[in-house]
């Protein structure tokens, strides 16, 4: 045991160097995607085992439901479906009209339709102060790609960052390192919504004190940046503090997608329209309001 003394220190030194090298490679050069993907696949059994109790619990909960409850649930769902269908009818008419009007105006704005969606189950959620990420059970074998937008019924959830063959990892919009371009649905004021590390808050920095944003305003994706398709709800402004002594207003928003209690998300393949993209930049002038 005694002769191991110096060798521990040497190994410490070697591994310290290795850690720093790994971090540099990962952060500066993003060279480790393949390594990450293979290690993630290797660790898949751990992830699956970890989510097993929750699934068993859910399964019991579902199978122990009474017939009456199922019937009432079915009834509710049918009603909801009817209402949604009604709205879709209007949507089709509206979207056609929108297209015609924007053609008349020569505007480049298009409502982007999802080409393909896929439901992914969340296998693990990491909500600590540094990272808000989730593990999904769909990977590159189904065409999931880094940068892919993630939604649920209420709005934008986040985007995929790492992909391995059978699983992937996504950042939530509340991750401190995540930013999403948004615009105010009421008047088109554009901004960036940056995660805060708290699952009920987004920050909108660098907005002038005169900015036209009020609590209750809905923020939707602006489509700038090309990652998220435009027009999906992101958050609702819940606080605007204007202090004349500060150059910028302090604006916060709450995500609409209730990130604390999501179980499933939709992976979205936005329609690719490369020819449509270049005319977009003039839209950014809305920022100076």
């Amino acid at each position: 045991m005694f002769r191991r003394g110096p060798s521990v220190t040497i190994r410490l030194g070697l591994l310290l160097v290795a850690s720093v090298a790994l971090m540099t490679l990962d952060h500066r050069y993003q060279r480790l995607e393949a390594t990450r993907a293979s290690l993630q696949t290797l660790l898949l059994p751990v992830t699956y085992t970890a989510e097993l109790p929750g699934r068993v619990f859910n399964w019991f909960g579902q199978s122990l439901r009474t017939n009456q409850r199922l019937q009432s649930e079915n009834h509710d769902l049918r009603r909801e479906n009817l209402l949604l269908n009604l709205q879709v009818q209007q949507y089709n008419a509206l979207s056609a009209e929108n297209l015609r009007l924007s053609n008349l105006l020569g505007s480049a704005f298009r409502l982007e339709n999802a080409q393909r969606v896929l439901i992914a189950r969340i296998m693990g959620i990491e909500l600590d102060h540094f990272s808000h990420s989730i593990q999904l059970n769909k990977g590159s074998n189904l065409g999931v790609y880094p940068g892919q937008p993630l939604l649920n019924a209420k709005g934008i959830v986040g985007q995929v960052v790492h992909v391995s063959p059978f699983a992937s990892e996504a950042l939530l919009i509340t991750d401190p390192s995540h930013a999403i371009p948004v615009k105010n649905n009421r008047n088109g004021v554009t901004a960036l919504a940056i995660g805060t590390g708290q699952s009920n808050q987004l920050n909108l920095p660098f907005l002038p004190n005169t900015v036209d944003l009020e609590p209750g305003d809905l923020l939707v994706t602006s489509g700038l940046g090309g990652v998220f398709p435009s027009g999906f709800p992101v958050g609702r402004v819940d606080g605007v503090t204007r202090n004349p002594g500060h150059p910028f207003a302090r604006v916060t928003a709450a995500p609409t997608s209730e990130l604390e209690r999501i179980h499933e998300v939709l992976l979205l393949w936005p329609e690719k329209a490369p020819a449509e993209d270049p005319p977009e930049p003039p839209e950014t002038t809305g920022d100076n309001d």
């Binding site: 090298a21 790994l22 971090m23 290690l39 751990v46 990491e126 990272s131 990420s133 990892e169 950042l171």
Partner: peptide, 9 residues
């Protein structure tokens, strides 16, 4: 790998 974040941290 399991919890996301930069490798080596």
């Amino acid at each position: 790998i399991l919890h996301g974040g930069i490798l080596g941290q």
